[in-house]
């Protein structure tokens, strides 16, 4: 998943094996890599283990002495908790729609801007802006100026078409649409940048050959360009899933999970259960399930993608 792998899929590179380098110098290795591994062990591994450990307890933040070991009871409770199941469902919809839409829009944009045109450099820079804007701020701007029911831009524009727009953030199902719109707007530039870089790395001779053979533009895209981008697409989808599945700020700021838990995704559920309700054990059990869901979704896509990758490296 380095720059190299993203643009030109290759088999894993063998480590450098010069005579001098092959010797293992424990002191050097420990000095260069040790601090990073230690730091990550403290801030990442320790909390993760603690989350898993606490999920086996009935554990309230303000009554730490009354905690009791309950085994997998928290997980069994999750499976019957309608609020949790709702959150899992909302997360699935949110992630699926947003990942698909950004993949389509981002790839289209990269294809559109591939051929040179005046101002290309500036356009590329400006198209990056949504992704680097502070998400809390972007969400506030969308919520206040665009989705506001009476004074918002969107309902004003809809008014010209004779449509009376809903109270976007406060009603169902429009609330879900608002967080999807902001997330798609926010993340399309990410896909665009990745695809744009990958397109630049493609060998032009193959595409030119297809053109000479008489393949029209969309046929070249469908049968020549997209197949060459498969590895990039797989990695992009995996990254996008992890980003959407952990999304918190857009939803927290836009709807707070409402109305009627319509937009309560799993991150928000864990936040509410563990840090608002202070049920650490139960909340963390939900967090562990979220982690497993994300992990298995990525693994599934990785397996499909890797099979693809090896086939490709076998033929090229």
């Amino acid at each position: 998943m380095t720059r190299r792998a993203a643009s030109h899929p290759q088999p894993p590179r063998a480590p450098h094996r010069g005579a001098r380098r092959s010797a293992l110098h424990w002191r050097d290795t420990a000095l260069f890599i040790g601090p990073t591994l230690l730091a990550l062990a403290v801030v990442a591994v320790l909390p993760t283990l603690w989350a898993i450990f606490s999920s086996l307890f009935d554990w309230h933040f303000h009554r730490p002495d009354a905690r009791s070991f309950v085994g997998i009871d928290n997980y069994l409770r999750l499976a019957r908790d309608p609020r949790f199941l709702n959150a899992a469902w909302v997360t699935t919809i949110y992630t699926t729609v947003s990942v698909s839409a950004t993949l389509v829009f981002g790839t289209l944009l990269a294809l559109l801007t591939k051929a040179p045109f005046p101002g290309k450099g500036l356009v590329r820079a400006l198209l990056t802006v949504p992704m680097i804007m502070t998400p809390v701020v972007s969400t506030l701007v969308w919520k206040t100026f665009f989705f506001e029911a009476d004074l918002g831009l969107i309902n004003w524009v809809l008014g010209f078409a004779g449509i009376e727009g809903p109270a976007w953030v406060a009603s169902s199902p429009s609330a879900l649409i608002t967080i999807l719109v902001v997330n798609i707007w926010f993340m399309t530039p990410f896909v665009y940048l990745v695809m744009d870089a990958a397109l630049e790395g493609l060998p032009t001779d193959v595409i030119d050959a297809a053109k000479i053979d008489g393949a029209g533009y969309w046929r070249r895209v469908r049968f020549v360009i997209l197949p060459m981008l498969r590895a990039t697409i797989v990695f992009t989808v995996i990254f996008r899933i992890t980003i959407d599945a952990r999304m918190f700020e857009i939803i927290h700021v836009m709807t707070g999970g409402g109305p009627a838990r319509d937009t309560e995704v799993l991150t928000l559920w864990v936040y509410n259960a563990a840090l608002r309700g202070f049920h650490l054990g139960y909340g963390n059990a939900g967090g562990v399930v979220l982690m497993l869901l994300v992990g298995s979704a990525c693994l599934a896509i990785m397996l499909v993608g890797l099979r693809d990758l090896y086939q490709r490296t076998g033929t090229t």
């Binding site: 990442a44 993760t48 989350a51 995996i238 992890t242 991150t267 650490l280 963390n284 967090g287 990525c298």
Partner: peptide
Amino acid sequence: LFVLSIRFVPYIVFAVPLFVI
């Protein structure tokens, strides 16, 4: 891969334990 996998974990999973610790 371990280093990379940290980017795949939802931050809320870290946030709750870190808050308690």
